[in-house]
């Protein structure tokens, strides 16, 4: 069973399309939910819905869904960085550009603060964490404080 769960998570994080994408609709999550059963914990917060997939090694990917069904934030935490191209969708180009141009700063975090996109990659080897969100997609009365 444990092995099967691990396979499920790999597919969720590395295959496409397998998980909802920042800024897009939740539609693919329902399919994934069957596939990820036992791992995808869905909770409803004040004004938003939260999907959390947890892998056997403790890696967690969280997706924040607005009442309109849009993914307004994602976060991750664990021994590796998930496939950000998949999680961030079209927003990945801004992160790629930042990663390619941040040459003088070494060994530190990568931060993007664009007009309507915030991205942070932090931590260190074996303990990575980060988040990304789209301010304009936040539901009313929900602040960035909820993204953890």
């Amino acid at each position: 069973m444990k092995i099967m769960l691990g396979v499920s998570l790999i597919l969720a994080l590395h295959a496409a399309p397998a998980w909802a994408v920042l800024g897009e609709y939740e539609s693919s999550v329902s399919l994934d939910r069957q596939y990820m059963r036992g791992e995808d914990r869905v909770t409803t917060g004040q004004g938003y819905k939260l999907h959390q997939i947890t892998s056997p090694n403790g890696a967690v990917v969280s997706e924040y869904i607005s009442p309109q069904g849009r993914v307004f934030a994602v976060s991750w935490r664990g021994p590796f960085i998930p496939n950000l191209q998949q999680l961030l969708g079209s927003y990945i180009t801004q992160v790629q550009q930042a990663a390619q141009t941040q040459t003088r700063r070494r060994g530190g975090p990568l931060v993007v603060r664009a007009n309507d996109f915030v991205f942070v990659s932090g931590g260190h080897m074996r303990a990575f964490h980060g988040s990304a969100y789209v301010p304009s997609l936040f539901p009313q009365n929900v602040s960035a404080e909820v993204v953890r």
Binding site: S75, R77, R105, G108, P109, L110, V111, R113, V118, F119, V120, G122, G123, H129, G130, S131, A144, E145, V146, V147, R148
Partner: peptide
Amino acid sequence: GDSGTTPSTQYFD
């Protein structure tokens, strides 16, 4: 430099 401190990433490096 910036650590991009947000609620999910709270640290000093």
